[in-house]
């Protein structure tokens, strides 16, 4: 078999919306865990959001953290079980709105924890409200005229917020096309290797679609990521600190 979905994530049929990006990201995590041989060591802390449904769909040990704050739980997991890989599975709402303080302080302390942020520009599970990363002009349930600078401010960029901080790795990928998915897998694998070597705080943001809350078809959503979202949020590696702390 040339391409076979990893058994760690192929447990049962998922209940995500049609075209949701979580399935692709989960597959990338499963493939990397197989390649590194660390599937048994991974402990994932998910947010109370769409990502929490992953409890049913993968074979990794999973904790559902407090609402918007999986990062402190993931940090604690790493401190009490240093042999484990500790992944905090977040959305943009959890990482940059509700759990902003936790994200910043994990970065300031340079904790040995992996923050994976799936940025779909809305609070998806709660029905599509404005988040910190909602695009200017984007219509959501809480910005029905479109996001405006004078009301909701400008979109939040994590690479600006963490620039100059002494952390191990910061990158942003996308899953809008096959080349982007392959590139994103490289970022994730680099991040997992750094986390495995206890090099410090690692954050990877992935631009994912939310066709349900964007009011688009999945194919239109991917086109929007390519033409609008990736223009606002450029992909690439922003911080790649060599060696340990």
């Amino acid at each position: 078999m040339k391409y076979k979905v990893p058994t760690t994530v192929d447990v049962m049929k998922t209940t995500f919306c049609s075209g949701c990006g979580q399935g692709v990201v989960n597959r990338l995590i499963g493939e990397i865990m197989e390649e590194l041989g660390t599937a048994e060591k991974l402990v994932v802390t998910t947010d109370v959001a769409c990502g929490a449904m992953n409890v049913d769909f993968w074979n990794f040990d999973t904790i559902v953290g407090a609402h918007g704050r999986p990062l402190p739980t993931a940090t604690a997991v790493k401190k009490v079980r240093p042999d484990c890989l500790s992944l905090a599975h977040l959305g943009d709402g959890a990482a940059y709105n509700i759990g902003m303080a936790e994200t910043m302080h994990a970065a300031i302390r340079d904790d040995d924890v992996f923050a994976l942020v799936l940025n779909n520009c809305v609070f998806a599970m709660t029905g599509g409200q404005t988040s910190a990363t909602t695009m200017l002009g984007q219509k959501t349930k809480s910005s029905i005229q479109g996001r405006k600078v004078e009301v909701e401010g400008k979109p939040f960029h994590i690479e600006n917020a963490l620039s100059g901080m002494d952390i191990a790795y910061l990158a942003r990928g996308s899953i809008e096309s096959v080349p982007s998915i392959r590139k994103t897998k490289q970022y994730l694998k680099t991040a997992f290797e750094k986390h495995k070597n206890n090099e410090g705080f690692v954050l990877v943001e992935i631009l994912t679609p939310c066709p349900t809350n964007w009011g688009m078809t999945p194919v239109e959503s991917m086109k929007r990521i390519k033409e609008e979202v990736m223009v606002e949020y450029p992909v690439g590696e922003f911080i790649n600190r060599g060696g340990g702390k």
Binding site: Y3, V5, R182
Partner: peptide
């Protein structure tokens, strides 16, 4: 080529 495998969010495809 495996493009369908890469983009499918619901693991429909396996490529030989």
């Amino acid at each position: 080529c495996g493009s369908c495998y890469q983009v499918c969010p619901d693991y429909v495809f396996e490529v030989n």
